[in-house]
Design a protein around this nucleic acid. Structure first.
Lengths: 210, 210
DNA sequence: GCCGATTTGTCCGTATGTATC
DNA sequence: CGATACATACGGACAAATCGG
């Protein structure tokens, strides 16, 4: 739990944006004013702003100011943040989730039925840091058809991820398969002045409920 | 074209990592050493490192150092950076691409056959800044089937994107539909100390060739 | 078109805190 | 314990873009 100043400012501004205390397309107070408001240095304000920009909340324009470009996402979407377990995501979205363990090795079924992430973090004191994900669309398998009513689709959205702990070792490889009707993935990209690519931060997705 | 110092350092380190001048899992020189190497301030070095971390190239560990966790992506993947036109992406990946204009309104067909982004940026001097994308899996349409051999799939990967220019106005809405066999989307997420989510930066995807 | 005020962008040096070894 | 490493924060400087007079 970071009590860092920049993080508090970041969350405060984020909240103000989400609750429309700053209107869409409106300019936020200038960095100079934010410094007065929060009583901190410019770097600290800028760090909070940078975070919001990378998540597509704001857009800062040299010589002009910082504009709120946040638009709320579909309320029906089942939202999952960056690295988060299915169980955490379910709780956050207040939906029922049931995990059925179909095949298993290594860990005990009891742990998997709860939350593997929870087990790794709380019981083993492991520190999850970086996750790399790949998203593809694949043909359904017999296992898919057996457990999920695909309603005519013959494909599923498949996310594979490698997770690294704080010692840089990859300790997990996951594949999750999602029903097309309940799947949605969002991201934000910011174009660098270089002319090419780069960016993105907030990622969300919609999942099948069980 | 940014000639910013942090950007040059960022690109230099990125290159050294990609060409394995720093081995996988190896520690990079400490920030202190990098300061000597590049003859700049610590902030500047740290900004370059932050960029690399957000793209999943490195992982910095307080008290230990900065570890290279870069692993090259599938060479067969058709890679597209953040905000980039299909034509730019094709050129970068040295593949043939043909654009067939099926339906049309507003812009002229000639422009679309070339590159709409090119037209907007070079001819109109427009400045593309932020792009929000949503990825879903959808049933094929009659149009899909008419122009693309789906080889048995009855779904496609669909990306819709809203693009904003430097004045914060959304000026474009695009939907692109991709053949499952030629589609891949990658991202990186970094877990905040807060305990929850957040992160991702490098995004790539594999596309259908025409 | 110029000039000055405002605003964001880049960079520096320094200080202090915290984690690792 | 001390040395090393990254994390956070401050204050100052100058550049670059914008806007109004």
């Amino acid at each position: 739990m970071p009590k860092a100043i920049y993080d508090m400012i970041y969350r405060d501004l984020k909240e103000k944006i989400e609750t429309e205390q700053y209107a869409y397309q409106e300019l936020l107070p200038s960095e100079h004013n934010l410094i007065s408001l929060y009583g901190c240095s410019r770097n600290t304000v800028r760090r909070a702003l940078a975070e919001l920009a990378s998540e597509g909340y704001i857009q800062s324009m040299q010589g002009k100011g910082v504009r709120n470009i946040y638009q709320p996402v579909d309320q029906n979407a089942y939202t999952v943040g960056g690295i988060e377990s299915f169980k955490e995501a379910s709780r956050r979205n207040r939906r029922m989730s049931v995990t059925r363990v179909l095949q298993f090795t290594e860990l005990t079924p009891q742990i998997a039925e709860g939350s593997v992430y929870e087990y790794l973090e709380e019981e083993l004191g492991m520190n999850i840091v970086t996750s790399k994900r790949t998203l593809t669309v694949e043909h359904v398998t017999q296992v898919d058809e057996k457990y999920i009513d695909l309603k005519g689709y013959n494909c599923m959205a498949v996310i594979t991820s490698q997770t690294f702990n704080d010692e840089g070792v990859q300790f997990e490889y996951t594949q999750s398969r999602h029903h097309p009707d309940y799947f949605q993935f969002q991201d934000v990209a910011v174009r660098k002045k270089s002319g090419a690519m780069e960016g993105s931060l907030k990622t969300e997705l919609r999942l099948a409920g069980a």
